[in-house]
Design a binder for these strands. Sequence first.
DNA 1: GCAATTTCCGAACACTGTGTTCGGTATCGT
DNA 2: ACGATACCGAACACAGTGTTCGGAAATTGC
Lengths: 196, 196
Amino acid sequence: MGIDRRVARTRTALYDALVALIRRKDYATITVEDILAEANVGRSTFYAHFTSKDDLLQRSLERLRDLLIEVQQGSGHGADATGWDPARTLFEHVSEYADVQAALAGGHGGAVLREAVDKVLADVLRQAMGTGLVGGLPRELVIQHVVATFNTTLHWWFEHRPEMAPAEVDALFRQLLLRGLPAGAAAPFIVMADPA
Amino acid sequence: MGIDRRVARTRTALYDALVALIRRKDYATITVEDILAEANVGRSTFYAHFTSKDDLLQRSLERLRDLLIEVQQGSGHGADATGWDPARTLFEHVSEYADVQAALAGGHGGAVLREAVDKVLADVLRQAMGTGLVGGLPRELVIQHVVATFNTTLHWWFEHRPEMAPAEVDALFRQLLLRGLPAGAAAPFIVMADPA
DNA sequence: GCAATTTCCGAACACTGTGTTCGGTATCGT
DNA sequence: ACGATACCGAACACAGTGTTCGGAAATTGC
């Protein structure tokens, strides 16, 4: 009693259509009708599977989650002693898809997209961390911070230095995450020594 | 030849209405008609001043920007050797408004709101940093990272430890920002051995 | 105060998009 | 082949957007 081929076909068609649209339009401006046209799926059929555009997005991202887990678990079977860097792999992977980065950077729809992706990243990371120590810091805060820093770096990369190599970006990412800001970098916000 | 009082009244009424609504509804579900009802303003009048709900939001946040600049420059007290801590002041200030935090945390509308607030925070910070040093790190990346870390911390606070004191939260914030994660905390995401 | 100007109101309108319903048709699993 | 299931697509009610326009009301400058 496997899954009916028709439902599988319909769903993947909708997933693919959404992704295709995201790559060329701002997420916020995409309508259900756009998706139907792109996927060649009937209106009632759509609502038989998903409750809304956002619902479709979330379920679409489950694929991303699986992909991330795969990438991340490829480490255990690889060179685990020398260390494996999922973040760098992600930077490298993402660097090949400028349109995806543009979608994540985009104005109104970008925020919604980013939040959804953040959630997936956090889930994967949370699972990967297991019940490991967090060095005295609250576990969930660490997770959110890692995700946020990754996203910030990625966004900055695309917006300000798109020509930079993934390895360099990764180095910046690690600096921010593991060492923090140099003493004087955050002066005005942290400790004000402002000549007012 | 000042600004017509009717204009001023209408605009502040709309600003206030939006803020009031944000405090009790998810931003995404707020309609222009809600705003009109709350502010007692005619439909055509609204569109004579703003092009959309998002436009109104952005202009409303200009007030927030002014407030932040005031807070940041009002460092008359406590400006000793240890300096003045705008972040801590912000944590303390925000802790008094649970509904605002809820609005920023909220699902769909939260993301849009956060992005708008992030933009304002980044502007203020950018101006405050002037042409100061950034310790070898790209200036804009530092700004975005500070803002993102602040927001992450704030969000985590509200979601997971609302009873925590502002000073403690500020300490966590500074730890993340200035020292980074302790070795091992981010083990699954970051490589252990540091090739830098 | 008074007049000229500006703004506000509110109803009407066209438009876009959402989400549901239902009978007929095509496709699937066995 | 047959029964079950999924898909189609048109029609519908509904909510929200953004514009237009004439008349009423408030404001400013004098």
